[in-house]
Nucleic acid binder design. Structure first.
Length: 936
RNA sequence: GCCCGGGUGGUGAAAUCGGUAGACACGCAGGACUUAAAAUCCUGUGAGCAGUGAUGCUUGUGCGGGUUCAAGUCCCGCCCCGGGUACCA
């Protein structure tokens, strides 16, 4: 009987669905294990072979854990809000919801063909009101929370109001925007609007005038992780800095916890490092510089990580956007300074980065050096950022390359502070050497000087020790249609108010067009009477406001990361109408045990989700502080493009190895008409009308194509779709081949060339069960040799899966099946455990054979076989022999045997003889589990 | 610039603790079966040299040093590739 994957695979996929094989219940006596994939954005292009790589790995792991007795939660869903569906809607008028649903259906169809063990009953879609209700809910809670720096957690804003009323804000220690100090009396005297404005500065979800990344081409604001090199990640459009009133999340308040939490996670070092860089802890000091001739209050506070270099300060620099800039400029310099500030505003971030030539303008003001009393000129330059530190720096040109460039450009003095350093060509930035020209720091090393300078600054009231984080608050408004609406309206004072939680979800309204309004409002501005009646009724009922008043709703929508920041919690309890996740379900599953996904989310999703989760933890909504215990990054699968070489000006194509002799133009050719880099000439001629008369210069009778590794994309004709592979080889082959390609975390080009080997393996494995056409598995006892093959395999596969080393497991299966084929081993005692061990990798074929073996239940309910070490014991008598001739210290005896003493080793090997200095060893001790040890 | 990874045959890659480098697979070459093809199976396959041959010798994990009886693996100094990050003071 032939191995017919096309009959077997749909059959078992239907069986799993019909028998609810992979539906997971919460209440059970088994230990829980939560395996999660990063859910996909359902794009119109469908899945290509790269997408399922991580899903296959997590599926193998899930199925394995299930066989080892765990209750496994392995869900899947869709990150359904996103820009492409909206842009498609703008072009075609088709509602993004329709596009999204179609794409999801297509994804589902493709995923189902691969035979995943997802519990689809738990599916989550971020655009589903039943789900985004909880996204809106979290936002409402963030709005009503502030971050207390004493208890290091989010607390209700209501608590703040009480404190303000009783004692003002002077003793409040919170993460907040710049806020004036006020007393209880002053608070009482404030209008409701003024109070709301004060409170806004404390909220975790707050409306703030902040510098945002404005992308004119997309017509929206972008978060920092959505901008790379001054261009938008989506579409590559230029992005400029703009001051806008936007919803923001106070992610920066959590910087310290986000940093410290990393230590407890089983993530790759490189991913943790990426997050550490992004959070960007720097330890230093804030130092106050008084202004020459100005009033007592005036002064400039700078942040520096190098307080040891304070004696080398020869000027100061302010960021153009900084508040200092306007305050400090002297009247005679006002025009020049304003011109400069205007000019920098016009430049995009990209232009600023591209132009390394420093620019700047003198303010006319002088600061007083706090130690020497010298007058130091104060400049404005855009190399200083308003958003980091204090927006002002003390410039030490001798020991900072940026200050150095600026000093050289504007002829400012450079004072070297380290003995023997040469600053004639460049600054000396390294933190090494002995201090000089530095008063009380002279003679110290740089490291010592940093500490001493910090202590001096604190002791003498010149400033404070300070840690700074690079991590900034997240811009949370998008001027888009296809996203979660904010559950916010603006009251009679024009201040934002949240809808009551029981009024959620606030549904996304229909609009006539998906574009901004004529007045520049976001698309939601088109929803003329969007839900206003019902909303205002709710507001009236709860806030005792005249029901006829129309309050405007917030017209921005939330960004993509909003919906993906808590979806892993919803899977635990997907249909709960009372809570994002119920207490019981949350206490049972707790957190994601294994999260599989790409590194591209390191500074976006994986920061936001951790932030979001920590917030939910603070308000008692979830029981774990960190959402993802272990994280594996799968590599990207790139495309492998093929090229043909057309001789310029002709319709003649020359084979790759001969192309150097001609003047050729390489052209992408569809990888589907190329087999092992050999072009199918007839199909090539049929591919494009202009190639119908193509002529070829062949190499040894064949046309060899060139190849290159590129992104998988339509325009390169290198997209390989999993459906094609499944149709040709079956899902089991696809699954095993993707694992066989190499280590999971490595990026690699898709190359169909090797897939035959894996397919051959499955056929061989199938044939082990059959003699001719008859199923022929005997109940005879297995021989020691057969058991050795089996148990070695089990041990290998077990350790490999635990280490996510699936590629070597596939090899191990191949070796075992080859050996068993050689032995003609058709025994239940061997094939049954082998089938269970293989089932996570190739579930369909294993189910089929499992049924042939007489089982009536799915193999998913079987138990993964244990390795019995006794069958893989090496024969100890061979040891002295192996020692004779060649050195083999690394013969390891299995554990559980007594130590063996071998006194008769013959040492012919010259290298060993040298080591032993010509003398024979007194004895050779072989300790189980250890390397052979020689005693002289 | 800084911070992480990584560099092994024609190709994808193994080598879990410093112990026979290249498992397994692709490709290629030769062969069996077949009218033929597909499918399947067998043999060979890092490089170089010697030999009719079994085989033997030399060399070999980016480069240069070092430690060790023994180095792909450890140490020092380079080169190259990939990723992250960046006027972050």
């Amino acid at each position: 009987m032939e191995y017919s994957f096309s009959a077997i695979e749909p059959k078992w996929q239907r069986y799993w669905a019909a028998h609810r094989t992979f539906e997971t219940a919460t209440e059970t006596t088994k230990p829980p294990f939560y395996v999660l994939d990063m859910f996909p954005y359902p794009s119109g292009a469908g899945l290509h072979v790269g997408h399922p790589l991580g899903y296959i790995a997590s599926d193998i792991y899930s199925r394995y854990k299930r066989l080892r007795g765990f209750n496994v939660l392995h869900p899947m869903g869709y990150d359904a809000y996103g820009l492409p569906a909206e842009q498609y809607a703008i072009q075609t008028g088709q509602h993004p919801e329709i596009t999204t649903r179609q794409n999801i259906d297509r994804y589902r169809e493709q995923l189902d063909k691969i035979g995943f063990s997802f519990d689809w009953r738990r599916e989550v879609r971020t655009s589903d009101p039943a789900y985004y209700r909880w996204t809106q809910w979290a936002f409402v809670r963030m709005f009503h929370s502030y971050y207390c720096l004493d208890t290091r957690q989010a607390r209700p804003v209501a608590e703040l109001e009480e404190v303000f009323a009783s004692e003002g804000n002077s003793r409040i220690h919170a993460a907040c925007s710049e806020t004036p100090v006020f007393t209880a009396g002053e608070w009482a005297a404030m209008s409701s609007r003024e109070r709301q404005q004060i409170l806004m500065g404390y909220r975790i979800a707050y409306l703030g005038d902040t510098m945002v990344n404005w992308c004119a081409a997309l017509g929206t604001v972008l978060a920092n992780d959505e901008v790379v090199n001054g261009l938008s990640v989506r579409g590559g459009h230029p992005v400029e800095q703009r001051l806008m009133r936007q919803w923001c999340l106070r992610v920066s308040a959590y910087a310290e916890r986000l940093l410290q939490g990393l230590d407890r996670l089983e993530w790759t070092e490189s991913l943790k490092e990426t997050q550490r860089n992004w959070i960007g802890l720097s330890k230093g000091a804030e130092i106050r510089f008084a202004l020459s001739g100005a009033g007592a209050g005036a002064g400039i506070v700078v942040f520096t990580t190098r307080p040891d270099t304070i004696f080398g300060v020869t000027f100061m620099v302010l960021a153009p956007e900084s508040d200092y800039a306007a305050q400090v400029v002297t009247p005679d310099r006002k025009a020049a300074a304003e011109a400069y500030i205007e000019a920098t505003k016009k430049r995009t971030e990209r232009e600023r980065i591209a132009d390394r030539q420093p620019t700047g303008v003198f303010t006319g003001a002088y600061a007083i050096h706090p130690l020497t009393g010298d007058k130091i000129p104060v400049w404005i330059s855009d190399y200083v950022l308003a958003g980091y530190g204090t927006g002002a720096i003390m410039a030490v040109p001798a020991h900072d390359s940026r200050d150095y460039a600026f000093a050289r450009r504007f002829g400012l003095p450079v004072v070297p502070l380290i003995e023997g350093c040469d600053v004639s060509q460049a600054s000396f930035d390294a933190k090494e050497g002995i201090m000089q020209n530095s008063g009380f720091l002279d003679g110290l090393t740089v490291t010592e000087a940093i500490e001493k300078a910090k202590a001096y600054i604190e002791d003498n009231g010149l400033g404070t020790i300070k840690v700074n984080y690079r991590l900034r608050d997240a811009a949370f408004s998008r001027q888009r249609y296809w996203g979660e609406p904010f559950p916010v309206y603006y009251d009679a004072d024009g201040m934002p108010q949240t809808l009551p939680e029981d009024a959620l979800p606030l549904a996304l309204p229909d609009v006539d067009k998906f574009l901004p309004t004529a007045t520049g409002d976001p698309p939601l501005g088109r929803a003329a009477r969007w839900a206003w009646d019902s909303i205002n009724r709710t507001v009236a009922a709860t806030a005792d406001i005249d029901g006829k008043t129309i309050f405007p709703l917030e017209r921005n929508t939330m960004p993509g990361f909003a919906g993906s920041s808590a979806y892993y919690l919803r899977y635990m309890d997907p249909h709960n109408p009372e809570a994002l996740v119920g207490k019981d379900a949350n206490n049972y599953w707790r957190a994601v045990d294994l999260y599989v996904g790409g590194t591209e989310h390191a500074t976006g999703h994986l920061i936001y989700a951790r932030f979001w989760n920590k917030f939910l933890y603070d308000i008692g909504a979830v029981c774990e502080d960190e959402p993802f215990r272990k994280l594996i990054n799968q590599g990207m699968i790139q495309g492998r493009s093929n090229f043909v070489y057309r001789i310029r000006g002709t319709n003649t194509f020359v084979s790759a190895r001969l192309k150097d002799g001609y003047d050729v133009t390489p052209l992408h050719v569809d990888v589907h008409i190329v087999d092992n880099d050999v072009l199918d000439l007839e199909r090539f001629k049929a591919w494009r009308p202009e190639f119908a008369d193509a002529e070829f210069i062949l190499d040894d009778g064949r046309y060899l194509c060139g190849w290159a590794v590129e992104k998988m994309s339509k325009s390169m004709y290198n997209v390989v779709n999993p459906d094609d592979i499944v149709a040709r080889y079956g899902a089991d082959t696809l699954r095993m081949y993707e694992m066989f390609l190499g280590p999971l975390e490595l990026s690699k080009p898709w190359d169909t060339n090797g897939i035959d080997g894996v397919h051959r393996f499955l056929k061989k494995y199938w044939r082990l069960f059959f003699s001719g056409n008859a199923f022929a598995v005997a109940d005879d006892n297995a021989t020691p040799q057969e058991l050795k093959i089996l148990h070695r395999l089990i041990k290998k596969v077990q350790t490999d899966i635990e280490h996510f080393s699936f590629n070597t497991s596939v090899s191990a299966f191949m070796i075992a099946v080859n050996e068993l084929t050689e032995l003609q081993c058709r025994k239940r005692a061997v094939l049954e455990p082998l089938t269970v061990a293989l089932s996570p990798f190739a579930p369909h074929i294993c189910e089929e054979l499992w049924a042939h073996l007489g089982h009536t239940q799915s193999i998913a309910h079987a138990v993964f076989p244990d390795c019995d070490e006794q069958y893989i014991v090496e024969n100890t008598i061979e040891y002295p022999v192996s020692f004779n001739g060649k050195m083999r210290f690394k013969k390891i005896l299995p554990a559980g045997l007594p130590p063996a003493h071998i006194e008769t080793a013959v040492l012919d090997d010259p290298q060993t003889a040298k080591y032993l200095d010509g003398k024979p060893p007194k004895k050779v001790i072989v300790v189980p589990g250890k390397i052979i040890n020689i005693v002289l």
